[in-house]
Amino acid sequence: MLPYPDINPVGFHIGPLPVHWYGLLEIISFVLGTLWLIRRGRRAEWSWTQEQVMDLEYYLAIGAIAGGRVGYVLWYDLPFYLGHPLQILEVWNGGMSFHGGLIGVILGCWIYGRRQDRATMAILDFVAPAAPIGLGLGRIANFINDQLFGRVSHLPWAIVFPAGGPQPRQPSQIYEFLLEGVLLFLILILYSRKPRPVGAVGALFVLLYGIFRFLVEYTRQPDIQLGFVLGRLDMGQILSLPMIAIGSALLWWAYRGGFTTEPSEPRKSAAVGSRAPGS
């Protein structure tokens, strides 16, 4: 059993204002993601200016926050929020859903694409490899914040989380950091180094995130207000199952050339829409 590294959730103070690690890591991940996308956008096959990336980030942030919150309300605690509707707006009290955030981000990309005459899937291909930066740092923030820990376990690396009681638990936030953050980032970076069919990088993100999240949920303590929701499956797994199915369908469709872009699309040089899988 490993000791819980008792890190103060408050990183430092700016005058009287406490700066929490959670918020700080979210800001760091947003800045890192943006800088990385600006650098990626300079490559000839993408042709994104810095202003365009900053503009897109605005849509992504709004989509992620709004979608994440709506998803949490709908899929994790709807009866409570029906009784306390004003608390839906209190996002600072916690309660965000990745799956809702993903839908919000896709909607954000669609709206941005409509305004800037870019294909939604091409935008998703562009931003998908940056997503694990935020996801990974978010899991580290969960760990520091002593939240979203794992199930009771007696493995040698199990940790007693102060908020989880005296029993040792799986450090599931660390598993998620390694899978949804580090590994997913590396896979997407390596995969997107070569020209791929339009939609393939975004589809691979959806598929792999779904698989990783589904697996890690087996070690994670289910949300207390829900418990298990269908047999041995918790809500994270229920919501990840369609990601695996839809991610596979999107990948297949991308390699069929189903997302090939119009000639006006700036990314056309990177698209090899009608190439066969593995070619």
Binding site: L74, L78, P79, V229, L230, M235, I238, I246, L250
Partner: peptide
């Protein structure tokens, strides 16, 4: 088809979650 599947599955998940939360409470 993708949009329809996503919406229908989302509704299914919401109904399932509602039912479970009420009983679990």
């Amino acid at each position: 088809i993708l949009i329809a599947v996503t919406i229908l599955y989302g509704l299914f998940a919401a109904v399932l979650a509602f039912r479970v939360v009420v009983r679990q409470q």
